[in-house]
């Protein structure tokens, strides 16, 4: 069987990340090069980060999945903006 093209692997994994109830993540960037899969983007917590990597590994067996995700920070200062 012919190897699936990287573009379709990206499309399939992005759909899986959006539709799999463990993740439902719509904002993950996926890049595939040969057998390397790079995941970037932001998730809300460590648990979700693990879920994203898990779904990626299941969907692309035989690939090396690189976790370059960041966990969102929400501890910034709530400075107020004045709207005249």
């Amino acid at each position: 069987m012919a190897e699936e093209r990287p573009q379709y692997k990206v499309g399939r994994l992005r759909r899986a990340l959006a539709e799999d109830p463990r993740t439902n993540e719509l904002g993950i960037e996926v890049r595939v090069r040969d057998r390397d899969v790079h995941l970037t983007g932001e998730v809300a917590c460590e648990e979700r980060r693990r879920a994203v990597v898990e779904v990626a590994r299941e969907n692309l067996p035989g690939h090396e999945v690189y976790d370059e995700l960041t966990v969102a920070r929400i501890d910034g200062d709530t400075a107020e903006e004045r709207l005249p």
């Binding site: 904002g27 932001e42 969102a72 929400i74 910034g76 200062d77 709530t78 903006e81 004045r82 709207l83």
Partner: peptide, 21 residues
């Protein structure tokens, strides 16, 4: 009319505060 996207990942703070007349 001013528009603000207050999605938490955009704000990077717990909430935005807007002071209006």
């Amino acid at each position: 009319v001013r528009v603000r996207n207050v999605a938490l990942p955009v704000l990077r703070r717990p909430y935005a505060l807007y002071r209006l007349d």
